[in-house]
């Protein structure tokens, strides 16, 4: 055989091997996927029967079969995303640990932050009103309003109008001491 032919054949062989290696990379690496590889995907899935038990720790036979299915698909070289999609296609979105962001499921992600922001805004507005209300009658009552129930009371009061709330507070304190 001529050297040129040998070169050509071996070249083609090399290209073929590389191509084969590239296309079958995953399966070539892991002929039988390990338990850990299977569990990595299984832990993100919930079977429709054993609700709220992730697939990686679920003891039922059905879940065992699911795990074997995952192992098989991994061996075939499917990506984790593709495997998860397979289960979603067959059993619905409930196999995922979180609802996919489609349709009404938007609500699950939107409501808590919106409610929290609304609460925070409400609280902030309330703070502002309280502070304004606290400042308006500030001249008279601020100095005499009790900072805490330490009992040191400015009996002389702050001028002609005795603060109603202050009186009420004292009465209540007296009630407590009874």
């Amino acid at each position: 055989m001529k050297a040129k032919t040998i070169l050509l054949v071996s070249g083609a062989f090399l290209v073929l091997t590389v191509a084969l290696f590239l296309t079958r990379k995953v399966s070539a690496q892991a002929p039988t996927p390990s338990d850990d590889q299977v569990n990595a995907i299984a832990s993100q899935l919930f079977c429709p029967v054993c609700e709220n038990t992730p697939l990686d720790v679920c003891p039922t036979t059905a879940c065992h079969q699911w795990r074997e299915l995952i192992r098989q698909m991994l061996a075939e070289g499917k990506s984790p995303a593709a495997i998860k999609q397979y289960f979603v296609d067959y059993y619905g979105a409930r196999v995922l640990s979180e609802p996919p962001v489609t349709g009404i499921n938007w609500l699950v992600y939107i409501v808590p932050p919106v409610a929290f922001i609304a609460g925070a805004t409400l609280l902030f507005l309330a703070f502002r009103t309280w502070r304004r209300m606290g400042k308006e009658p500030a001249a008279g009552s601020a100095s005499s309003s009790p900072a805490s129930n330490d009992g040191s009371s400015p009996v002389t009061g702050s001028g002609n109008v005795l603060d109603d709330q202050y009186v009420a507070r004292i009465e209540e304190e007296l009630k407590k001491r009874k």
């Binding site: 429709p48 979105a93 640990s97 979180e98 609802p99 349709g103 699950v108």
Partner: peptide, 11 residues
């Protein structure tokens, strides 16, 4: 929707 979903730990 008639469809159940799972709201799991990641959420």
């Amino acid at each position: 929707t008639g469809q159940k979903v799972t709201v799991g730990p990641p959420f």
